[in-house]
Design a protein around this nucleic acid. Sequence first.
DNA 1: ACCTGAACACCGTTCAAGT
DNA 2: ACCTGAACACCGTTCAAGT
Lengths: 208, 208
Amino acid sequence: MTARAPLTREEVVAVAADLVKQHGPQALTMRKLAAELGTAVTSIYWHVGNRESLLDALVERTVADLGGFRPRGATPQDRVLSVARTLRRRLRAHPHLIAMVHERGLTERMFLPAQQALVHEVHAAGLRGTRAAEAVRAVLFQVVGHVLVERNRERAPAQHPREEELWGAGTAEEDRVLARALAAPADPERIFTTSVRALVKSLLDPPT
Amino acid sequence: MTARAPLTREEVVAVAADLVKQHGPQALTMRKLAAELGTAVTSIYWHVGNRESLLDALVERTVADLGGFRPRGATPQDRVLSVARTLRRRLRAHPHLIAMVHERGLTERMFLPAQQALVHEVHAAGLRGTRAAEAVRAVLFQVVGHVLVERNRERAPAQHPREEELWGAGTAEEDRVLARALAAPADPERIFTTSVRALVKSLLDPPT
DNA sequence: ACCTGAACACCGTTCAAGT
DNA sequence: ACCTGAACACCGTTCAAGT
């Protein structure tokens, strides 16, 4: 029974990340973390200061782990879509951690790596200056916003509105296909592709 | 000094809402709420069960208060944009409460009132069936997602990337206007209008 | 330099007891 | 039917004391 290896700041953050990934953010208490690490609660404070700093480090680590982008596709439109898809997939890989990044106000920091790739593509599509910047930001808002809404749906109590609730007075009651499509659960993957494609098409098309 | 008026469930929820609106979600503890109400902590439990149920009621109330929509504008495109703008404004009116709705997984419930209005408009634009349903959902995801990202930016430590960070190797270093536009803080209002307009244009245009 | 237990203030919740 | 205080388990944090 040898003594425990000396605690490090990196180990604390790594084990905290595991705890959140597996059991959600509410499972990350200083006491549970200490138990997981096999140390006294107060040891953690020496390495990370306090709980706030620990969460900062955790969220920083998550953002840094997002990584860079290698767009695929023949046209700028396709390559922007590929960046969007990759970003969505990476964000969805660790939903609890991404939720924490968002709750701690660092959503925008998640933009950075994708931003570099998108700048290149809108430039290739012929956009310049302010208009290019707006296109990049519109796509980023779109992708990250979509993932936030989508993730939410997944952990929701999954109550879809009954068909009758969908219609105001004098609305298209006759469109049964539409009614059933809206009453059924949405297919987020499809919404994502449809809407990113639609947005990119409008943004990158030369104004006529 | 007459005795306190008898406590009601509605009063508990209302005061809880005020507490959250003014001081944020973390200010809503059972003990602080009791102090605000002028009762013993344990009285609250008789009326609302426990903290979870209280939050459910609070979030339900917030969603119900969103209200209906009266689209304005000459074309379906304009009226969809007006619904999007109104929804954004209402969501932004009580950021703390909306954040709670989101954290508790009821984001989708916020869709309902706007959904009725949007169904009418995409129908007027000539869309039917599945394609209409996809358009409605794409716009809702877009608007709500945007508001979530936007709100996040506002309470963030406001650290914008320095210009150099924006560029990968071999990227358009020569576009100074783009560089400066991306280094400056984003104008969310503008991004919102630009991207909703672009999305709606693509979705409602007849396929050619 | 690193770790520890005791102690403090705060939290949600239960329960027996009051009216 | 409604309200109360005492008590319990859990939390983040500080601090004096150890090595």
